[in-house]
Design a protein around this nucleic acid. Sequence first.
DNA 1: GTGTCTATCTCGGGC
DNA 2: GCCCGAGGTAGACAC
Lengths: 218, 218
Amino acid sequence: MRLLVARCEVLYTGRLTARLPVAVRLLMFKADGSFLVHDDAGGFRPLNWMTPPTVVEEDGQKIVVRKRAGKSEDRLEVRLLEVLSDTTHGLDATPLEKDGVERHLQEELAAQPGVLGDGLRLVRREWPTDIGPVDLMCRNESGDWIAVEIKRVGTIDAVEQLGRYLERIELDTCRGVLAAQTIKPQARTLAESRGIRCVEVDLAVLRGDREPELTLFA
Amino acid sequence: MRLLVARCEVLYTGRLTARLPVAVRLLMFKADGSFLVHDDAGGFRPLNWMTPPTVVEEDGQKIVVRKRAGKSEDRLEVRLLEVLSDTTHGLDATPLEKDGVERHLQEELAAQPGVLGDGLRLVRREWPTDIGPVDLMCRNESGDWIAVEIKRVGTIDAVEQLGRYLERIELDTCRGVLAAQTIKPQARTLAESRGIRCVEVDLAVLRGDREPELTLFA
DNA sequence: GTGTCTATCTCGGGC
DNA sequence: GCCCGAGGTAGACAC
């Protein structure tokens, strides 16, 4: 990775146009072709960037990073006024191991669908519809079908998404359940008005890592 | 900004848990408290990060970046095995000037609502509903109300969004128009099935910077 | 503080 | 290639 600290001006043209006035910034060139322009604030997002595959051209006064993006071209132009530092380091590239994403929640709920309702049993994961897969399709003891949408955070969008599936599912009657670690109040309200049941679940509890919290004075 | 290149292991706990095995990476400490862990691939997103406000503790062997986030705490732990470089630079922080985002499209369409339909005139921008503002509210020559949702890219979500507004608008009849620079086919299909009209618009043409493309052999 | 929407969203997976 | 859905989405703005 090459790290260039320089007083510079940056112009971007592509999906929109953007300009950075002259100032001292950090320019990062990653080994895979990624290019990032950072300043000393603004969180994790670069001011400007280009993701691979890129072509970098440089002549000491100007750096041009280009990319063929669909119909038009994305182009980042850096005018260098003063280079304050220019170093290169050999870095590794290892994957990030995540735990606790939606997929893990789905795995646990597929293994114990009973927490979503009495007597529920799993028919299949990723039940196909013509607009996308339902996370879990279950049936209860009466034979009723129940489509389950799983989210880490249950929002209005999740209710809409499940609603779209329910419209398209070609079964006589199919009810909907939204299962999430947290469910937003307004999503809950919308769900209720559409007859969709909400269930809050806790991954750690599902895994048996933690006891269910006992609500006092319930 | 402090740039630290080091062989390190990183642990994150917070909204989920994640681990980075030992490898050489770049650690960025921004002046505003942002902390980023980058490797030599993977585009603009850091492997791990923490946005301000943060508290950083360091003892030469370990760096802990913490944040009070809602109920629980976000925590990033870096175990340093070997420091290869450790430099600090004074950087500026200037705003990025953008042109061509959704707001600009809204401004042009507000100025010339006629392109959205014959005889349309603007009643107001950001017409309030109880779930959010409609981008443009218009009326046509017959006095019919027309709610316009504007996007750079028109997706299914945009159709749903407009649909939610239409449900809540307290007018006798109000039709919907989705205006976007590009509209996805499936969004178009969903829109049609809901009686929402789709209009593709071009910011450059609206501004008069470019002539409308004449389709040959139309 | 919640709630909502935008984003050069990025990224991955499926078809 | 397009399209859809997830994301530690982040960030901005209104209420």
